[in-house]
Amino acid sequence: MRLIALLILVLFVVVGVVVGALNADPVSYDLAFAKLTMPKGAGLLVALVIGWLLGGLTAWLGMSLRHRRVLRRARQSSGKTPARA
């Protein structure tokens, strides 16, 4: 399983290097507050990294919020038990 993951990673790196080399010409982005000029390949990479990080952040936030909710409910229920008894 680890070998397959490693092979896929190598494949992506090779594809990335090839795509980066083929798209070395600069491209300009107007972000309203700033103007950026970078190679096309680098732009692609930055977009992918930002998307990946945002996805990870969303998942982490969702999981931690769910954990907190579960903990709060557990505390509430344990707090109620002695009152019933």
Binding site: V49, G51, W52, T58, A59, M63
Partner: peptide, 12 residues
């Protein structure tokens, strides 16, 4: 970008 977002979400 959505594909990368989904990938990051699953990984985390």
């Amino acid at each position: 970008v959505p594909a990368a977002f989904a990938s990051g979400w699953f990984a985390a």
